[in-house]
Amino acid sequence: MILPLWLLWIFPQVWLLLLPGNLLIDTEVLLCALLALGRRDKGRLMRYLWWRVWWRGFAADAAGVAWLLLALILWDMNIGRRRAFWQKWLEGVMGDPFSHPVAFLWTLAAVAIAGVCIYYLDKKPLRAAGLTDREAHRAALALAIVTAPWTFFLPAR
């Protein structure tokens, strides 16, 4: 994901930039992975894989977003009563992940969850496109690391 999640709620029209931007990043990483693997049939593979990698990346990002939303739900649970000790820890997840070590680790977990999902969701179509197990592993790993939603770390304040 190329933008922080909170920006999509504030400015919904950002989706018009997000979709092509995310497509560009995903296809560039896929092309670079195929080049690094020395595949001669890059054109055929790109035509088969570009949209599969793109929409699966969004699905994987949604898993990371769900983890972030869990922090918001937990943080919001005690509103109106005395603050629980862990609310201070999770407060920064939606605002500034660098404000508390727990908020940072929670956000890092969201990025890792999305990255693992990207890896497993992309590995199957890579294999179906004709890549060997080793090639599919390397390409899926490159996609998982580079296209993980690192922008979850951008502060909202």
Rank of each mutant, 00 (worst) to 15 (best):
L70Y: 08
Y48L: 12
A63I: 09
R83I: 13
A59D: 04
F85S: 10
R83Y: 14
A63F: 14
F98S: 07
W54R: 05
L49K: 01
D76F: 09
V102I: 10
R82A: 15
A63R: 10
Y48W: 14
D96A: 04
L74K: 02
F104R: 03
L45S: 03
A63P: 06
R47D: 13
A60T: 05
M77Y: 15
P101L: 12
R81D: 14
R82P: 11
G92T: 02
F85K: 09
I73W: 14
E91H: 15
L49R: 00
M77L: 15
W75P: 01
A62Q: 06
M77P: 04
L69I: 10
N78M: 12
F85N: 13
L70C: 12
L90C: 07
L68H: 02
A60F: 08
F58A: 09
F98C: 01
F58V: 04
D61M: 11
L45K: 01
L90R: 01
P97G: 08
A66Q: 08
V102Q: 01
D96V: 02
D61I: 06
W89V: 02
L49T: 00
L72E: 14
F85C: 06
W86P: 02
W55F: 13
V93H: 01
A59K: 02
W75D: 03
R52K: 15
W86I: 07
V65T: 03
P97N: 05
A71E: 03
V53G: 00
F85T: 05
M46D: 03
A60N: 08
P97M: 10
L68V: 03
F104V: 02
L105T: 00
R44K: 15
V65H: 00
Y48G: 04
M77T: 08
Q87S: 12
Y48P: 02
M46C: 08
V65M: 07
M46G: 03
L70N: 05
K88W: 12
G80D: 06
I79K: 14
L69Q: 10
M46N: 02
R82F: 15
M77D: 10
W51R: 09
D76T: 09
V102F: 04
D76C: 12
V102A: 05
G57R: 01
F58E: 07
N78W: 11
D61Q: 09
G64D: 09
W86S: 05
F58Q: 06
A66D: 07
V65K: 00
K88V: 05
R44N: 13
A103W: 03
R52Y: 08
M94T: 08
R81V: 14
G80F: 09
S99G: 07
H100K: 04
A63C: 15
W67E: 06
S99A: 14
R52V: 02
M77F: 15
A84N: 11
F104A: 06
W54V: 04
D76M: 14
N78A: 12
V93E: 05
W67A: 12
L69S: 06
G92P: 03
E91C: 12
W75E: 06
W75Y: 14
F58T: 02
A66W: 11
G57N: 10
K88L: 13
A62P: 02
G92V: 02
N78K: 06
W51S: 10
A71L: 05
G64Q: 10
Q87P: 04
H100V: 04
L74G: 04
W55P: 00
P101H: 07
M46T: 03
L74F: 11
D76H: 10
I73H: 11
W50L: 09
R52W: 11
